[in-house]
Design a protein around this nucleic acid. Structure first.
Lengths: 339, 339
DNA sequence: CTGAAAGCGCTTACAG
DNA sequence: CTGAAAGCGCTTACAG
């Protein structure tokens, strides 16, 4: 910048003004400055700017990628968040922090302007840590009591209700839930599964339907094993809500191997997943697909609202999953006894 | 730091020395400084440090996530690279830069110490850009002529040869390759596919085997369509190399629907993928799995060698994929006519 | 519209 | 072993 100023015969302040459009500059000197920048191939140093302005224009999407594989539908959140950030003049990067000290390093050192939190737990220690460090942040997800927080999340409650409604309409009265578990250790209490379980239990009870609940790891092999468990422990079950997209392919395979047909013998409806994941199986799954694009975008908007003092977006919002029919749900083979 | 210095009754230089262990400090004053830091909850500001030391300790894994979905086996490269970086005192973040100006922003502004490049093309403009900006970088992958670059890559040449050898041993003489294409627009010339095609053609010719070549998009639906194409255009083909892990599930499904059995009617061997992706299908695929962990680690080591002046690692290395048997390869149903 | 100057929070020769 | 001081590359009141 010094060099540019010298070459253009202005002060470095003026260079700064023209680079940032932060103060009016006469056309003539602007032209001189721009020519000089051209000639020197000048790029303003982001670190210097960050130190002086206390803004790095970097947002971090916090995802515990070392513990929890980054894959499947969650990837869409990142993509959407990154492109929204880019439109708004920020860079969003995926920050694979996991343990406390890494989060600490991120927040208390001024490297990023704000944080977007993913994989939120019901009782998430990172929320406290972020609050304490006064780092602006927003959640994609929500804790058990998120009333004081800025968040966007899937409306699991209504999504589960819609899922059960769909299956009940088809005539199912005995329905199971297969989820990926609520995690353990530092990642315990994974909120989406906690909420889905609760809503499932409530809604099934309210309708007087027979409910079953299963858990398996998030991979195809576990899904394959789960098929046998399902059939053994709930032989009368005719439909399943799947809250574990990575177990899906194995589950369907396992059912086939046991001589079960999908959807004739068991309807499957995948929750909070995506068409792409649903297309991994045969038949392809009917799915309530996660509003990833919208949540990624809204999360970034909330964060930038905090940063730029805007206040234009709903600070807390829930979005339903959208039903996308596949070929894995149908009426049960034997109609339920009509009273 | 000012505050700490005042409270501990030392200069800020001394605080810096004890924080960084950059100069000897007497135990007594070290204790005073540390007590003061404790009391004030001091964390050294990373931006200030970066400006003074010209080091941010951030590495960027460059992946064009907005164009090319970040998923599947490539995710393992990131995870491995991130944990290696973390062990070595750096933060590695996923930087979804795609167009020139975004890359420019990354490199010419001093925000990151170095860059790890993924999804390398045969003629990759980013290499030139990185070189011109004097940003330290290493490749996970390699260009057409990488002789001057630091890189780690899969040894596609020998991996393809091993794959063909495996199938030839089983008795196959008519073998196809189904890849995901070499990309178009800014992402044209995707090096892994270019290399695989070349090696495939050479090795098949050298062995006097009958070769077929197919391309389809990287998703299950495209794989399903490809099944029909394969059967129509190469009815005599008995084995297939799959260089398109995301088409795999659809491909197998599509074959089944056409009444083809895997591996009895068609053997499939997946290249540069992973057991996890291979487990998505039924039967699970035999796979030459990508050495993701090792390449992610080595890529970061190369980069840190440049940064810290170390020189301890091979600057160019190729790693073979490891064969992991699944259930998708077998001798062809009809033995080939024995001359 | 433009400039001189202070300051962002550190690191690092240089002296002692 | 410790400190005073310059400097990293910018931004931003403050003056003019």
């Amino acid at each position: 910048m010094q060099d540019v100023a010298r070459l253009a015969n202005v002060s470095i302040a003026t260079v700064s003004f023209t680079v940032n459009n932060s103060k009016p500059v006469s056309p003539a000197t602007r032209a001189r400055v721009e020519a000089a920048m051209q000639e020197l191939g000048f790029r303003r140093n982001a670190v210097g700017r960050a130190l002086a302005s206390k803004r790095t224009h970097i947002l971090a999407l916090l995802y515990p990628a070392l513990q929890h594989r980054f894959r499947g539908t969650v990837v869409d959140f990142f993509t959407s968040a990154a492109s929204t950030a880019s439109e708004r003049g920020y860079n969003l990067v995926l920050w694979p922090a996991s343990n406390d000290s890494e989060l600490d390093e991120l927040t208390s050192t001024g490297l990023v302007d704000g944080v977007l939190l993913m994989e939120v737990q019901v009782d998430d220690p990172r929320v406290e840590q972020l609050t304490a460090s006064r780092t602006p942040f927003a959640l994609i997800g929500r804790t058990g009591d998120p009333s004081a927080l800025d968040y966007v999340d899937i409306d699991f409650e209504n999504t589960v209700a819609a899922a059960i409604e769909h299956l009940a309409q088809l005539g199912h009265t005995s329905i199971g839930l297969l989820d990926g578990g609520v995690g353990r250790g530092a990642l315990r209490g994974y909120a989406p599964v906690v909420r889905t379980r609760e809503s499932f239990a409530q809604e099934m009870a309210a309708r007087g339907l027979t409910a079953f609940s299963f858990t398996c790891d998030e991979n195809p092999a576990a899904g394959r094993e789960a098929a046998a468990t399902l059939m053994n422990e709930a032989p009368g079950m005719t439909a399943l809500l799947l809250m574990n997209e990575h177990a899906g392919p194995g589950l369907v395979t396992g059912l086939h191997r046991l001589g079960m047909s999908v959807p004739a013998d068991l309807s499957i409806l995948s929750l909070a997943s995506s068409r792409e994941m649903a297309a991994m199986t045969d038949p392809d799954l009917s799915v309530l697909s996660a509003p990833s694009i919208e949540l990624g975008r809204r999360g970034v908007e909330l964060l930038i609202d905090q940063l730029d003092g805007g206040n234009q977006h709903e600070r807390q919002s829930l979005v339903m999953c959208a039903f996308e029919p596949g070929n894995s749900t149908a009426p049960p083979r034997r109609a339920p006894p009509s009273e």
